[in-house]
Design a protein around this nucleic acid. Sequence first.
DNA 1: TTGGCATATCGGGAAAAGTCGATATACCTT
DNA 2: AAGGTATATCGACTTTTCCCGATATGCCAA
Lengths: 100, 100
Amino acid sequence: MDHVEIFKALSNKTRLQILGWLKEPDLNFPEQPNADFDTVGVCVGQIQIKSGLSQSTISEYLSILQRADLISSTRVGQWTYYKRNKEGLEKLSEIINTAL
Amino acid sequence: MDHVEIFKALSNKTRLQILGWLKEPDLNFPEQPNADFDTVGVCVGQIQIKSGLSQSTISEYLSILQRADLISSTRVGQWTYYKRNKEGLEKLSEIINTAL
DNA sequence: TTGGCATATCGGGAAAAGTCGATATACCTT
DNA sequence: AAGGTATATCGACTTTTCCCGATATGCCAA
């Protein structure tokens, strides 16, 4: 993954907020029946509502964050759940400490 | 400084390279008479030559990086020297560890 | 004070990103 | 099979970024 793409993914207020929300899902989203935040994450619809942007925009933003390895997804039935990707964020710290 | 602006500053290959070069000036730039790398940094002209982009582009890129607190500048006579800003980069690490 | 460098700023054209509504796809229920 | 719901993709339009050449500014030397 190109470093530039990671930083581009972070160059947007909403996408940064999404990462912040996903850091503490229980504080930022209503309870989900049959879907543990830590195991699968938060479903697209909830993130969309919270953001106030359109469904299509949020779907795209989530895929940008995923391409940058900052989040990961799990499909369960008709829902897609996204959660923070700890490894990707650690790699980002490393990039900053070694390349910049 | 807005977090988004910091990441935008980093969302460009050339600007990332500049930060990398400034991390080890002695490995990346020819010796400068009367200007210690650690004290003042590297002058715009050298960075421009190394980048291969136009003078105006590099001047703007440097000011974008400076606005994001990632580098700092010192004017000496007709030269402006830029160097890495350790504090800004540390703050960036902190942002990643606390906000994302 | 005139000319010559080094850097900054300005104006612009091309490419990319932001964002939407409409539509497609996938899955679930009945 | 049909309809409903969740998400993804497409096409379009607007705004921002990339990068340039031209010009302005600031400083130095003759």
